[in-house]
Amino acid sequence: MYDIGMTVFNGLAWAMATFLVAAGLTLIFGILHILNFAHGGFFMIGAYVSYSIMLGFGGGLPLWLYLVRAMAAGVVVGLLGWVVDKLVFRRLRDVEDAYSLIATYALLLICGGAVTLIWGLNYMGVMPPPALNSVIFLGDMFMPTYTIFIIFCGVAAFVGLELFISKTRTGRLIRVVAADPWMAQLLGLNVKRIYLVTVIVSFAMAGAAGGLLMPNQSLSPELGGIFLLQAFGVVILGGMGSIRGAFVAAIVLGLIESFGTYFFPQYPGIFFLLALGVILLLRPEGIMGKEQTA
């Protein structure tokens, strides 16, 4: 019972950390139909920016400052998103998938190079704020508060994004554009602007995820690649840019990875890939299918 509980808990932690990274990726994929390789790179930049802000304050931050810092990283990376949309994404609207994939791959390389130039190569580690650096015991299960916090953040990001898409005016416009950009144009909507908003929101989410997950990870220029394949898997398995699909996919893959490791510890780290391959073969359009865009 203890083991099962912990395995589920760890699986959820994996799932929500991955979802935090994948949420922004899903948004761009659903609206702009670009699978953004560079997303991992901007996630990494968010983590580094938030690290730099932290250095300004010294260690042992209170929780609210930690959150503010993550938001600040989100704002910085969101601004980068504005630049990237102007310079790159705007030109990728009418090209084939291969070109946009390669363009974003090039961006990922540039992100890695830029991080190396600005922050150097040394590994850096940050511990969670003191308020999140303890353990909660539940029966004989022990759950680090920081991990609980990450799971909470993942759920909050999901709910927030769903509300944004379905309840706000901008969100509804985004859905219209995703469904039929041509028709949206005819109706007099400023499609370009809606694309821009989408990119900024997506990048800001990557940056904020970097800030939130930073105490979970060592910082190094390799960070950009670490979540990438995982997040790709979640987005694709979730279906064409479906936020709900990505959320479910993250949980499914997280649990499979976690239980796989539990039952077959001699083959670490392959179950998520294995499951992804098998599920995609059975259901190539992903969990939510094609029709449920955004």
Binding site: Y99, I102, A106, L109, I110, G112, G113, L117
Partner: peptide
Amino acid sequence: HGLSEITVGTLLLLVVLLIP
């Protein structure tokens, strides 16, 4: 030293954007 990544990335991006 440590510039080959950024060089390759920039070049590729320029090719895709300017001469697709």
